[in-house]
Design a protein around this nucleic acid. Sequence first.
RNA 1: GCGGACGUGGCGAAACUGGUAGACGCAAGGGACUUAAAAUCCCUCGGGCAACCCCCGUGCGGGUUCGAUCCCCGCCGUCCGCACCA
Length: 876
Amino acid sequence: MRPDRYNARESEPHWQRVWDERKIFESSNDDARPKYYVLEMFPYPSGRIHMGHVRNYAMGDVVARYMRARGYNVLHPMGWDAFGMPAENAAMQSGSHPATWTYANIDTMRRQLKSMGLSLDWSREIATCDPSYYKHQQRIFLDFLKAGLVDRKTARVNWDPVDQTVLANEQVIDGRGWRSGALVEQRDLTQWFFKITTFAEDLLQGLDTLDQWPEKVRLMQRNWIGRSEGLRMRFAVASDPRVPAASDIEVFTTRPDTIFGASFLGLAVDHPIIRSLAEKNSDLEKFCDECRRMGTSAAVLETTEKQGFDTGLKVAHPFDDSILLPVYATNFVLMDYGTGAIFGCPAHDQRDLDFANKYGLSKTPVVCPSDVDPASVVIGDDAFDGDGVMINSRFLDGMSIADAMDEVARRLESRELFGRPQGRRQVNFRLRDWGVSRQRYWGCPIPVVHCEKCDVVPVPAVELPVILPQDVDFKTPGNPLDRHPTWKHTTCPTCGGPARRETDTMDTFVDSSWYFARFTDPWNTEEPTDPAVISKWLPVDQYIGGIEHAILHLLYSRFFTRGLRATGHADLDEPFKGLFTQGMVVHETYRSGDGSWLAPTEIRIDSTADGRKAFALTDGSEIEIGSIEKMSKSKRNTVDPDEIIGTFGADAARWFMLSDSPPEGDVIWSEEGVQGVARFMQRVWRLIGDLKSVAAPVGSMAPVHFGETAITVRKATHNALAKVEDDIVRLRFNRCIAHANELVNKLGQTIGSIESAEIGDDLAYACREAAEGLVMLVAPMMPHLAETCWSDLGHEDLVSQARWPEADRSLIREDVITLPIQINGKKRADVVLPRDADETTIRTTVLADDSVQKAIDGRPVKRVVIVRERIVNVVI
RNA sequence: GCGGACGUGGCGAAACUGGUAGACGCAAGGGACUUAAAAUCCCUCGGGCAACCCCCGUGCGGGUUCGAUCCCCGCCGUCCGCACCA
């Protein structure tokens, strides 16, 4: 007995069990079919999934299911980015051990993901906090160390003196620790670094090959790497009692051509010379401290005035030592870029001009725009950074900028200052090495020991993993590993003497920099990866995740890929061939009169002709409907996936997430919208029932001849299939859904008008084809409903394993087409013509048409533009 | 400040990157069925006009073109990213 209504709450768990039992989503490394690796960014196990996860994983699942139907051996794994601070925060607040907390969250979220009906290979599940995972990460660390890709050096960190911990930049709010509220100190600590700069050039060049990445992300990475070509040049310091004889200051410049426009040297407040001067000059020290306090956030810098402190030092101009330039400590030169020193050329750099205007420094123009008389060049409030010809520059006069740059570089390279060449061409990168040391417990231990005799000694590979101790307490501030009574005490692998374990753990970005590789062979207990298996599966064909990872995660993964290749773990250029960044899930906000936020479950919406209004469920008072914002706990505009799935089913949630907006844009979650999806699902269920009642049996042969109605049905089916084929691979899910809607509308109309006497073999076949086509077409997006319909249509097998019914595009091609006719560019008529009509026929037919004649109204026709199979434009 | 993206009905959006602007969905209005409601089905739904096969309409102003949401120039507005990068 076929129920009138489809019951998602019964069907969904049923099919999930069937898929699970038959292990149909597990992929084999030995499968000979062409591979397709689809991956969504794995989640942090924060507690429960949110609607953003639902959207992200729904998208990936559509691709996985579709590619499977197209005959690919699909790898679609899932795991957990399981190390990180929230687990330690929870430990401090509730006393639960980070591992307990994390694994409990994983269990909850796994259950939630399973209730979504995702076609995931759970046999490959990994959690980065598991020793079976981080063992291999430690091994990679050691191999990178051996390959010279790891460095240990001093770096400045934000130090919270109360919590006794290093803070990330985003944990410093107004100069204070986010948790303790203590004033944050800058400390120099010896830290571990991955030498990502080794690959700076390659990481930049590799971007050109990533043509299936969003241009926006490539641009962001390009800017982050920040390659620039320029010249390092040294200025001799004029003799001064405060500095040693034969001192020099080295600057980096991308505009050596403007050297005759130089009017000062600007040094970072952390520049060694400034630091040493500040030791004996309290005014300078005060200035430096103030600059440091201002921070480096864009918002601050935007509004900050250029400031300087004249040190009294002078340097000689390299081409005329009678010209002495003042040396300033400045707030706009950064120590960690270039050499921490610049020469300022006010005429051709806006910042330098602002600075010069403030301190009354000269501003000689040295580049003249080609259409301006050199004598009339004046520098006002705007620096000129365009192209032109050199002026006021002695031996450079008349040269182009490029030639002048080259000439200056050439002269300084071949000349010595204090026994070394005065200039050196250099390619400079903004990219800095990746500091991975974290003074925390819940992370991957860095596998080295410190021995008094042998210094830093790697833990031998056979002794891995270095496992985190279980018995730690979070009651006192600081790193639990560091104050653990026994854990850090060990013996030196080299000399056997007493040694101390490294108590820093790795940045959690390390964990996610190679998980995509581990998924290919997660059972491998000996090696992180098997290069042969890597070559089989990687690169990831389609990677899907949030734009917030556009720079760091993706760049680190690209670095790791290069490191893994250098250490023989993977023969691979780039990890992610296709990248897609999906938009957020947003929702209306609701705010009561007293300013407090209300959750969507606490209000009722009334829609009438004069608009939508919200009322509180508790007392019926009217609630203001606020702006649409990213779902967040603070604004209380979240919806819980469990509740949605419980009420409407996973299929409805998935479908709605994909339906309304382009996938890269934000989607507005609305109750009305998901109700619309629920209606659509019932419509599909009824339509399949209607089609089934007239459809031929499973596997019927196609009849030779098709009548008019059958052809209409077939055209609708194949048209929809063709459009979905085109759109699904481009991830245009919203359009796929529109095509599905159109097909349902069309089939519903046609079926409704069929007289039972009309049904012959041809229509029966067409209805079977239509029903199965529709089910296949919605299956990647609403797999449970599709399975139920598939089974209802008499299939023993699963739609999840069925082959895609490729669209027959010859059926869609019409022999007779309706051509829109424009008169002077405005549509005035339609003319029905054979598709292959020649231009003369088209012309005569069009001009003979009544509506066309009426529109022409006797005026002479100047021209008839015919675009075949598209449009005709009559010009009068 | 620099860089990037975008601007189409009441709303989310389509439009094969130069060819019928508004597919599809949401909301709304009208009707059928029903004792009633829900569900379902049918119709209307950018603006103007009594009405159309008419006129206007893709942020604003120009331009190129037989033809512009799409290309070019100049404004206005919104969103995102950032690093005062020498």
